[in-house]
Design a protein around this nucleic acid. Structure first.
Lengths: 126, 126
DNA sequence: CAGTATCCTTTACGATACTG
DNA sequence: CAGTATCGTAAAGGATACTG
């Protein structure tokens, strides 16, 4: 096993590593980080890239990512105003560990789908 | 940007890669996979390793992981019965992409905590 | 444009009790 | 031991309307 505490610490909330993973492994976080891979993007561009995320939830997630230091938010004054989001160095570093996972998923989604179909077929019988 | 569809496909549900990521990036999945890193474990051992997961939720998550082909469930008859869970080759392969992320989190949790403190302090002022 | 505010539904989860 | 069943709570998320 890795030298990390899988188990949460009872006294002081969560194991610090768990505290990071909770954010990173959220439903939207990795997708948002991915959307910033090629450089800064405006709010609306990120929303368009992901597609099925609501404005409210995107804002929430961007704030959480900003809070953790993965993303920087920059307001360009004007009317209408423009807000750019970009990866910080730490965010880029994190993304470089997420990308292998996404690549893996790209290469294995057929195998996973097959496994699901097999499982569901067996379920139907039993 | 990577050659994957960040955006969901409107017609047929989700982009297949997204369909994998939803499971993989769940709150518990990576922890369960991690608990199986060193070899097969019984249900109760996994539960003890993670600590703060309820029996119901652990069962649910193990079933999902089994369905996707990452984990194999094996019942050893007897009384009381024993159920072993172990990684499949595909599950082990997936875990090898998750571990760098966990290692990264281990090495950066202090920096993230500092970023959070900074952000929260600024919030208090504004 | 980039949010905020509000409402409402869905999902995830924990706790507890029970069983082969 | 390894579940299943049931209940209740809390968090996540979608939809819509409104604003500097």
């Amino acid at each position: 096993m890795l030298p990390i505490t899988v188990q949460a610490e009872e006294e002081s909330g969560l194991c610090p590593v768990r505290a990071i993973l909770v954010t990173v492994t959220g439903k939207w976080s990795s997708l948002i980080l991915l959307a910033l891979e090629d450089g800064p993007q405006r709010f609306s561009a990120i929303k368009r890239l992901i597609g099925d995320i609501s404005q409210r939830v995107l804002t929430e997630n961007l704030r959480a990512l900003e809070r953790d230091g993965y993303v920087r938010r920059e307001v360009v004054p004007g009317s209408p105003i423009e807000v750019r989001y970009q990866l910080t160095p730490m965010g880029g570093d994190l993304l470089s560990r997420i990308i292998p996972l996404v690549t893996w998923a790209t290469n294995h989604h057929a195998a996973v789908q097959a496994a699901r179909n097999r499982y569901d077929a067996d379920e139907r019988v039993s």
